[in-house]
Amino acid sequence: MIFIHCPHCGDRNEDEFAYGGDVEHRRPDDPDAMSDAQWCEYIYCVPNTKGWAKEHWWHVRGCSRWILVERNSINNELRRTDEDSDRE
């Protein structure tokens, strides 16, 4: 039960959140310009980083905001980011 820091609500148990994927795995801006192979790479090859990665988490049982969390997938170590997921 990892303890995720929500910039709005403070530290909360993992079960209040829904995982939203790796930040690097962004939906392409112009899918029509991509080849079938490139598109399949995006759809089916989802990153599963070993070590530190920046992730979207949705605080669905709290403030309902999307936040960014830095997590080390090896040992579940967390780093605070205090950022919302909303892209700049």
């Binding site: 939906r27 919302d84 997921s85 909303d86």
Partner: peptide
Amino acid sequence: HKHLEKLLHCDWP
């Protein structure tokens, strides 16, 4: 709901 929320916040803020 999650699908729409994620698109709105992470892809089309």
